[in-house]
Amino acid sequence: MNYKLKEIFNQVQAEEELKKHTREYINLQRQRYAQTKARKYSHHIYAAAFTFLLVILFGGHWLYFTPIMTISIDINPSVELEVNRFNRVISVQSFNKDGMALTEELDMEFKNYTNVIEQILNNESIVELLSQNEVMTITVIGTDGVRSEQIMSEIETCAAEHHNTYCYFASSDEVAAAHAMGLSYGKYRAFLEIQSWDNEVTPEQIQNMSMREIRDLMNGFPEQEDELTNNGNGYGHHKRGHGSGNGHGFGRRN
């Protein structure tokens, strides 16, 4: 029977038709498999590229539109410039009507802050105000000491050619309190000093005063005059050319 079993099983051969169909079927499946694999990988590539693009877009947006520094400029127009890590002005905020007129007149956004300060300092109305013995204060507000000093130094260079212009540095914590009162930082500092002599003074009054008027008001306090002279405070301390910024930094007359 052993032999007969072998004979029987030998009769069973895979049909040529069956082999042919199998080859065709495998070829078809191999093509589908390769296509699916390619499609799968292409999806991965698209997903990775899309994610990369999103990271670049959101990361870039975050990097560009996160301010690292605020520059507060007060004369009578009071404006604040927010500066990003690329030294570009990303927003301009005005704190009074003159400030609004100035921001409307000048194209400041997305420009280098030194160019913007030059534009402001060379603006006709500002030049006229300075020539009328008005006082301009430029306050750099930030947290990064080295960076702030760098910016401060550049602003001082810009302001050097202009009469009655003072530069200060302040920490960013103080700015929130100024904004809460609707004042730019330069006027807020002046408001605090005036308030220490006159409790009745209001932020609204200070908001619409020019820096010259504020300074004259401050000069009206005899003790203040003494203090300014003694402490070298930036306000009304023109001749020294250097002074402390209300105890928080430093000021320079140019």
Partner: peptide, 14 residues
């Protein structure tokens, strides 16, 4: 694949 079909088709078929 063709080699394997020729070699093992009968065994699989049986």
């Amino acid at each position: 694949i063709n080699r394997a079909i020729e070699l093992h088709a009968n065994t699989v078929r049986r």
